[in-house]
Design a protein around this nucleic acid. Structure first.
Lengths: 135, 135
DNA sequence: CTGACTGCAAACGTTTTGCACGGTA
DNA sequence: TACCGTGCAAAACGTTTGCAGTCAG
């Protein structure tokens, strides 16, 4: 189990309280928009600047410590980079969840059909989450 | 074969020269960013306003005549709504192409794994297109 | 000690809005 | 004719940049 300090060092980023908290927030919440993250950060660092959030998010995205996820019909969210996975977005409560299922078959099929050499896949599915199906 | 005039009428939009041309451009090019579309429109309507482009794109997207496609690491492109399909984005020449392959299996699998009732899928694959593999 | 990071303010690019005029139905 | 669409200008919005002071390594 890797510490947040190690995670930053591996990505050649200095360890600052703001960065540690950004990562802690993303680990806790999974997916956050810029302004959700900013609001949460303000609770811990009342003087934190939105510019600091942007600079850090952009740097962490460049070093691939985190990753932007573009949400159809919504704002981008950010997440810690981990194993490849799909995203589920709930139409009702708008939460974003990861699910891990194999994508090899569809990628193989797409390579055959298109002739592309595929490097990466971005799969987002929209629907109703189990919680909202009950309510 | 449906005319562009019919397409607009079905979506409760008045038929104007600007709208006809926007649709013609999207039909011709497949996928366009806002500013690509604006530049192309300027060639036909030297006084066309960027605001007109935005208003029309937004209205056509609301009526689901067209659809925004969010490109990982790039600007959104717009396309005419047609049968469901995947998007391929070339890392080298940045072109966007449609491919039509079945997505039922992966959607079924995702529904089982997540418990979501899935309504729509957004699948974009990044890689090298056949043309750029040669060059 | 040096370079990197932070916060603030200003700048920037993109998208939206309000309004007067013109065109569609 | 009534309403919708257009073009222009201004406003709003999200994001980036420059700078001076501070902090991590």
């Amino acid at each position: 189990m890797e510490t947040t300090v190690e995670l930053l060092k591996e990505h050649s980023l200095k360890v600052t309280p703001q960065r540690l908290k950004i990562i802690a927030m993303l680990e806790k919440h999974g997916h956050l928009t810029i302004d959700e993250l900013y609001r949460l950060m303000l609770q811990e660092f009342p003087n934190v600047s939105l510019a600091t959030i942007y600079k850090n998010i952009n740097q962490m995205a460049e070093t691939r410590l985190i990753q932007e996820v573009k949400i159809p019909g919504g704002k981008s969210v950010y997440e810690i980079v981990k194993e490849p996975h799909l995203h589920m977005v709930c139409d009702r409560c708008h939460k974003v969840e990861d699910i891990i299922i194999g994508t090899d078959k569809i990628i193989k099929e797409a390579e055959t059909a298109s002739g592309y050499q595929i490097q990466e896949s971005f799969i987002t599915l929209r629907g109703i989450c189990p919680d909202c199906q009950k309510g």
